[in-house]
Design a protein around this nucleic acid. Structure first.
Lengths: 150, 150
DNA sequence: CACATAGGTTGCAAAGTACAACCAGTATTG
DNA sequence: CAATACTGGTTGTACTTTGCAACCTATGTG
């Protein structure tokens, strides 16, 4: 989570990613849509590329333009972004969604992002426990054990 | 999403929320576990309370201590946090998960957070479309329409 | 009463952000 | 082919946020 914060916790990065999901590819386009300072945008795009979420490719037709695209890693964040948007609509904008996510084929709105068990049953918060992974540092293990007591 | 950035896009907030999910309640505890500056922590907690994600309550037994707890709004972010953690394990720490999420009853790891259709089928990224909601500003509608062409 | 503890606030130095100007390659236009 | 414009940057400088340490108030403890 600390590593997550280093990337998307930085101001603007989440907005840049949203833009990318909306199909924005070019430096100027990001700048215009977001109203972000150019040096900050350059820095964020560089970091996103370094982190492997986006890739930078020169256009073959016009050698001035550079295309920034989401890598597979970056695209894998889509469910999280959707969940975040759904959460914001419900809890920050009291139900007023400015954007909806629908299944292309049927046009029906997708289900709220939630946590499922290994065999596909929806889980409630109370049904979920956190446990330390194999290479977690010992202090985390102790804290999780303590948290589990509650 | 802009409103989301104002809250969790700010440095430390995501870490504070993670701590809260781990059961941390007190100012000093947050400070010790996170190594965050006290003024920043005070500011973040205040903003989280103002945004309705956490609530501040004076303890009845010891009148010095204040309890910070996640509200229902804050708890509703848990699936997103889980998704983010799963994503980080896979794409930032090449599969090395320091924390796992399991179903309490069976102890089995939960499924990766994903997007489901209204009737519960898992959806791929390519199956999902974004459409403007009822009270979106017109420019967003135009952009989504253009994005849908691709 | 003296001292410790919880939860802050304040002041200052360092880092990060915003704004504007500038610059180097490429296209496009006359 | 020269002048202009566009893309994707990189400075420089002012302003804001962050980090660190010290201090403060209200409560509890020996």
């Amino acid at each position: 989570m600390a590593r997550v914060t280093e990337i998307i916790g930085e101001g603007w990065t989440l907005m840049v990613l949203r833009e990318a999901f909306l199909g924005t590819r070019h430096f100027n386009e990001f700048e215009r849509e977001l109203g972000i300072a150019r040096n900050i945008l350059a820095d964020r795009l560089k970091k996103l590329v370094e982190a492997g979420l986006m890739e930078r490719a020169a256009s073959t037709t016009d050698r001035r333009v550079v295309e920034y695209r989401l890598t597979w890693s970056g695209q894998a964040l889509f469910p999280v972004l959707i969940g975040l948007t759904q959460w914001a609509s419900e809890h920050l904008c009291d139900g007023q969604a400015s954007m909806r996510f629908v299944e292309k084929e049927s046009g029906r709105e997708v289900a709220p992002v939630g946590v499922l068990s290994a065999d596909g049953r929806p889980l409630k918060l109370a049904d979920i426990a956190m446990v330390a992974g194999p290479d977690a540092d010992p202090s985390l293990g102790a804290r999780l054990a303590k948290a589990a007591e509650r």
